[in-house]
Amino acid sequence: SDGDASPTASSVAELDHLAHVTSRSHLETCQYLREELQQMSWQNFLQDEVESYQSKPREGMWQLCAVKITEAIQYVVEFAKRIDGFMDLCQNDQIVLLKAGSLEVVFVRMCRVFDSQNNTVYFDGKFAGPDVFKALGCDDLIASVFDFAKSLCSLHLTEDELALFSSFVLLSADRTWLQDKLQVEKLQQKTHLALQHVLQKNQRGDGVLHKLRCKVSALRSLCSRHTEKLSAFRAVYPDVVRTHFPPLYKELFGG
């Protein structure tokens, strides 16, 4: 179990347990349950509703999106707290991992509320295409976020696989400012093995694992582009960010 690609018989039970615990944590904190998602009418915004989002002032749309992201991040924090070993890390490292990884997990979780056929995502009560976010003035970033969701959806991950991948992303041992890199590395390695084990059990083959590892750099790029866009927005609207953005959002992305 310490780095071997094919776990020994004795460690299989351990990996099954980790997969089970992680999956339960994911389902307890995933914001929208399967049953709720099934009940959603997958209703798209009507044209006049789209236009009303598009005609919002830029700062109003930014504020709305900051609120929605913050809500989603609060669930990710709860997920992190239930990851095996996370709360045993020092507080500095918990904060470092969440600051760097919480938005990445929001993007991962987005594939659960994404409709690939219509290229829409659940937002503010209905399914929204990229055009709904026009007022943000970040068309390129929005297009990349939608492309990412579509590409992750195409892997048809189960909730177990999604849970372990989310945990793997959060437990990235290469984040800057970690105090106990080794401990995070151990947790991430164990999560990687559990993910590999579950993928094998689900007869998915190694191709999926490789594709998921490639997604890690795509996630980092999306998040750094989000930070760049926020900086550009804040340069123009410093008071809007200071007075109207959720405090947690500012803590995470405020620099």
């Binding site: 669930y75 924090v77 947690l248």
Partner: peptide, 20 residues
């Protein structure tokens, strides 16, 4: 700690998604 006050609070509180 002051810089990440809310994150600290969220990490320390035993909240559940229903409370969020």
């Amino acid at each position: 700690k002051e810089k990440h006050k809310i994150l600290h609070q969220l990490l320390q509180n035993s909240t559940s998604p229903v409370d969020l």
